[in-house]
Write a protein that binds this DNA or RNA. Structure first.
Lengths: 202, 202
DNA sequence: CTAATTATTTACTAATGAGTACAGAAATTA
DNA sequence: TAATTTCTGTACTCATTAGTAAATAATTAG
């Protein structure tokens, strides 16, 4: 009952496309145009295969998106991981925001953040998808909260610091930033937003 | 050549529905389901009229949405206007965020902010619509910047304070907040986000 | 009353897109 | 080689939706 993706090396006709590659191409399309506005016809063409092959491999559109989302949230963790690379919490948060901006603006994929965009549209998506998206957002909130909690333990933040509130604040801000990035906001203006945000802990 | 909306009291068969009311109903639907996911069939039904009447009255879907957006941005200004109701900049910003939360959560309309949601999807919309949305966001940025500039003049903020960056920061944050509201975030958690944000100027 | 004007409805078109039935192709096993 | 398994493409179905053509209804001007 697990939704495993395996290179079934068993018998029968072998698959003529790579599953991981197909997910990557789907990711780019979903990222660029969202769940609703990406058609399976498009994806099939991008993957170089016909629609029924996709259905056979991934189920329906929702299941495909779910797999893409999981794949994405693996890579996504970059900025959150950066939080743990600095002992000083301000440096850590600076790196967190910086990496969010950098990765959101970097080339080789659409601008912005697939998860933030999906979150924005979550009320329009199939309920199960919406739940999964919210769960991923929640994970992000909690990962940031963990790091802030450590900063409190380390005496870098006051003992009564609202860790959960601050974590949600940071993730919320980055959602807004992701929308700006997607809409084409300039790097320099994004930097200014970052600096303004950093006053919150300075 | 202006896109005026007048109760043409001239001759010919009189219109059997109210234009403003039609815009209000359209607003609620677009707000709830976005531009792409709201069909003119739905709107026609909500207005109590057939599709061609809408086309005759408003042009096409894009023009209708444009008019809805203008109508909305009138009401939207509430939080921005609140900025001018307080002499102290911190109180002003507190009220700004508070009103954003309150109005985004209030009943009688969908949760969140039509403009923020539209902004999130702006890359998917017809180019002219996207431009108009960005222009409205820009207006908001500048309105906040104006108020911050005054605070600098009043000596409530340091002379080298980055007014434009802080303004963009606040609007960006509220976009993130609007997404959270839309996704069902609790009032108490939103308050905690607000308090975390207020540290930026405290 | 007649003509002109404007709004409304019925009934379409054309395009798009999710999902599927089915037959054929490519491999493994016996 | 024959049987079995699994994947692939062709060719659909069915639903939705933006937009329109054309006939009709309601009003004013003369």
């Amino acid at each position: 009952m697990s939704t495993e993706i395996k290179a079934s090396q068993a018998r029968g006709r072998p698959r003529c496309f790579n599953l991981e590659e197909a997910l990557d191409r789907s990711l780019l399309l979903f990222w660029q145009k969202g769940f609703q506005n990406t058609s399976l016809d498009e994806i099939a063409e991008a993957v170089g295969v016909k629609k029924p092959s996709l259905y056979a491999a991934f189920g329906d559109k929702e299941m495909l998106f779910r797999k893409v989302l999981l794949r994405y949230s693996g890579k996504l963790s970059e900025p959150v991981q950066a939080l743990d690379r600095y002992d000083d919490i301000r440096e850590a948060i600076n790196a967190f925001i910086e990496l969010g901006i950098t990765s959101g603006c970097s080339h080789g994929h659409p601008r912005g953040c697939l998860l933030a965009s999906a979150f924005a549209d979550s009320t329009l998506l199939p309920p199960n998808l919406a739940k999964e998206i919210k769960a991923l957002i929640n994970q992000a909130d909690q990962a940031v909260a963990q790091r802030l909690k450590k900063a409190v333990r380390d005496g870098q933040l006051p003992a009564d610091f609202d860790v959960k509130g601050a974590a949600k604040f940071l993730i919320t801000l980055m959602h807004g930033v992701a929308l700006r990035i997607r809409a084409g906001e300039s790097r320099t203006d994004l930097q200014r937003i970052k600096k303004a945000a950093l006053r919150c802990l300075g």
